[in-house]
């Protein structure tokens, strides 16, 4: 349990600051930009619905996955690749400790469990920021915004967002551990760089593609 909690703490609590800043601006921006779009055909009053549905179902989970994925995934891949090229993994094997069980499994579980919580947190911050943007900056009616939100965003949507977080967390951890673990000693420091870069890029692309598949299955 110890390593699991430590990795969860590193991945989860370590990402909160970054995630807060990003979701704040993404939420504000979602209000501002959809206002600019909806104004063209006079639908400003539906901002609450749009910011709620688009944000909670799609934007915030994907953003949490891409951003935290970039940070967490890069750390995971770099740590594992470093252990691999400095032969620490082989040393574990010599001591009859299974490196998969000892190194990879706790990290995989930790990130899989941490990301849904981060997604839930991002949903809350994002909706708050959208409200701030719509009411505080654009001067829309707060009551309309909240009632729209209440009517169109249910607990189910929040659940879907967190479910997406679970899948993305697992995917990010799997991809990063795979690239980190595959680094070879002869590649040296460059191997670490290649592994982290691939972990970030492959993780982001796979999360976005899988998001489309999940949304298609659930809402299509």
């Amino acid at each position: 349990m110890g390593p699991l909690l430590r990795h969860m703490y590193e991945a989860g609590v370590g990402s909160v600051g970054l995630l807060t800043i990003l979701t704040l601006f993404a939420g504000l921006n979602l209000s501002v930009q959809s206002y600019a779009t909806f104004e063209r055909f006079g639908g400003q009053d539906f901002l609450g619905m749009f910011a709620g549905v688009g944000g909670v179902r799609e934007l915030y989970p994907v953003m949490a996955a891409v951003v935290c994925g970039a940070r967490i995934g890069a750390n995971l891949a770099a740590a594992l690749a470093n252990m691999k090229i400095s032969e620490q993994v082989e040393a574990l094997e010599v001591m009859a400790i299974d490196p998969m069980r000892h190194l990879v499994a706790p990290r995989l579980w930790a990130v899989t469990l941490a990301l849904p919580i981060l997604c839930g947190y991002a949903n809350v911050v994002g909706i708050g920021a959208s409200y701030l943007g719509a009411v505080g900056q654009l001067g829309l009616d707060g009551g309309t915004f909240v009632s729209q939100l209440h009517e169109f965003v249910g607990l189910l949507d929040l659940g879907v967002g967190m479910f997406k977080g679970l899948i993305f967390g697992w995917l990010v951890a799997l991809i990063s551990c795979f690239h980190g673990y595959r680094a070879l000693k002869k590649e040296g420091a460059e191997g670490v760089g290649v592994a982290t870069n691939r972990a970030i890029v492959h993780g982001a692309v796979m999360c976005i593609l899988l998001n489309l598949v999940i949304s298609w299955v659930l809402y299509g």
Binding site: L18, I21, L22, F25, A26, L28, N29, V32, V67, A70, R71, A74, N75, A78, G193, T196, N197, I200
Partner: peptide, 17 residues
């Protein structure tokens, strides 16, 4: 390399807004 990615994403979102 990592810091570049993380900081640039922050800058992109802030500037975008």
């Amino acid at each position: 390399a990592n810091d570049t990615v993380v900081y640039t994403i922050v800058i992109i979102l802030v500037v975008d807004y």
